[in-house]
């Protein structure tokens, strides 16, 4: 089972290494990881995408909470949330495929961030499935490089709104 956790921590030296060390030391998975300060610059938010069975996922949350520098662990299961990731793809663009690639980019609402006689670099933001679809469609053209940011997640403000089922 895949799970995205958002971990609010003290913005101090060494905190990330405590979190990452916990995962490696106890054999937990990290699929992706994003770290940056929050509005309050004394705190950082770490968004970790992990996977495991129910027992492992429960342990991960408990072990994270046990770290002295961890203020809060948010599990988005049973919550309304928005999830995004950004990807940059450098795809081979030969004379006969240049137009097609731009059409694909347009369909996915990707932006061209760099052009050369041989390739396009495209940037796209979306959830996991959208990015996966984008990569699959571009693959036949020849992908030279991919860089992904890892997933970030935010709870939706549901005040005064109908809850999505």
């Amino acid at each position: 089972m895949r799970k995205v956790l958002s971990v609010l921590v003290d913005n101090e030296a060494g905190v990330l290494s405590r979190v990452v060390g916990l995962f490696s030391g106890r054999g937990f998975n990290i699929e992706s990881l994003c770290v940056a300060p929050t509005v309050d610059s004394t705190k950082s938010k770490i968004v970790i995408t992990t996977s495991g069975n129910e027992q492992v996922l429960e342990q991960i949350q408990k072990q994270l909470n046990k770290l002295v520098n961890v203020i809060k662990v948010i599990d988005y299961q049973n919550k309304d949330f928005v999830e995004r990731e950004m990807i940059m793809v450098k795809v081979q663009a030969k004379t006969d495929s240049r137009a097609e690639i731009l059409r694909i980019a347009d369909i996915f609402r990707a932006r061209v961030v760099d052009v050369s006689p041989h390739s396009y670099s495209l940037a796209l933001t979306g959830d996991k499935d959208k990015l996966q679809g984008f990569i699959e469609i571009l693959s036949p053209h020849g992908i030279n490089d991919i860089v992904r940011t890892g997933t970030i997640i935010m709870e939706r403000d549901m005040r005064g709104r109908r809850k999505l089922t």
Partner: peptide, 14 residues
């Protein structure tokens, strides 16, 4: 030593 003992202390400080 803070790095070395991170996994075997409850917490540590520099």
């Amino acid at each position: 030593i803070v790095g070395i003992t991170r996994p075997c202390t409850k917490h540590n400080y520099l």
